[in-house]
């Protein structure tokens, strides 16, 4: 329980606290900070000159606040530079998809190039946003508390939001079911992030791209037909894989919050 200081003590405090020991002054001061009633007593206790002065200061500050320049409006943090750096890779991905769509439209006899290329289309830009070679400030990024999965997810979502509309146009243009291109894209992106926590995002993206090209794209171009894993029956499998890989990424992020490191210096 706090006991309030006596009005006499407060008026002594207000008039300079002559004859009151330091400990008492501190106690009164500490009490005044938390007690509005005693502050009101203090206001009455101070001499009129001081009160005048305080009033004038308060007025001046209020006028200053009202008439002065307004605080700078908080701009959204512009991270256009990051986007611009990835731009060439986004263009590459877009160009690839458009070329695939055009190719598919021109040559009926070939299996759908859009479906074959779509899964790996976002991987190159995703690698570009989290790579030691392509991020000039990687050494700084590596020392930040806000590192690891959250910023990588942000950047990946940025890439996906740029690549997916292009894919949607290409998919609509060639008349494929959205699930057939959307799910593989998400699956491969999640796979890159999951593998990226082990070997680095850029290497993971490269490895998956090469594996998909060599294992699926080239054989199906040779056979001139789509592989079974790009047929309608495989949709549940893709969905399951995507969910599982995303879970792997989240679990790993929780266990080792500093991964994926933007570089592999200590490996």
């Amino acid at each position: 329980m706090t006991t309030h200081p006596t009005p006499t003590l407060i008026s002594q405090y207000a008039s300079g606290a002559a004859g009151v020991d330091d400990t008492t002054v501190w106690a009164v001061e500490a009490h005044l900070e938390t007690c509005a009633a005693c502050r009101a007593v203090l206001t009455d206790a101070v001499d009129p000159d001081t009160r005048n002065l305080l009033d004038r200061v308060a007025d001046a500050i209020a006028t200053g606040v009202a008439t002065g320049p307004r605080p700078v409006r908080r701009r959204r943090l512009l991270r256009s530079g990051v986007a611009a750096r990835v731009l060439p890779w986004l263009f590459t991905a877009t160009g690839l998809m458009l070329a695939a769509a055009l190719f598919e439209w021109t040559f009926d006899s070939l299996p759908s190039l859009v479906l074959l290329v779509a899964p790996v289309a976002p991987l190159l830009p995703v690698a570009a946003v989290w790579s030691r070679r392509l991020d000039p400030a990687w050494e700084l990024t590596a020392t930040m508390p806000r590192t690891g999965l959250p910023p990588l997810m942000r950047r990946t979502l940025g890439v996906l939001s740029a690549v997916l509309p292009v894919l949607a146009v290409a998919g609509w243009f060639t008349g494929h079911s959205p699930g057939l291109w959307l799910l593989p894209v998400l699956g491969f992106t999640a796979g890159t992030l999951a593998l990226g926590t082990v070997v680095g995002v850029d290497r993971a993206a490269l490895a998956l791209t090469v594996a998909w090209s060599a294992g699926v794209v080239v054989p199906s171009l040779v056979d001139r037909q789509l592989p079974p894993i790009l047929a309608g029956d495989s949709l549940p499998g893709w969905a399951l894989t995507t969910v599982a890989l995303t879970a792997v990424v989240l679990v790993r992020a929780r266990r080792r919050p500093n991964e994926p490191h933007p570089n592999l210096l200590h490996r």
């Binding site: 530079g81 990051v82 000039p136 400030a137 050494e139 700084l140 806000r146």
Partner: peptide, 24 residues
């Protein structure tokens, strides 16, 4: 760092703001 990498299109203020944001 010895090799101070930066984003050329950022202004100084944006860059320092970005770093401050990364520093939570």
């Amino acid at each position: 760092p010895q090799h101070f990498g930066f984003y050329p299109r950022f202004t100084v203020r944006e860059f320092v703001e970005y770093i401050a944001w990364l520093k939570e």
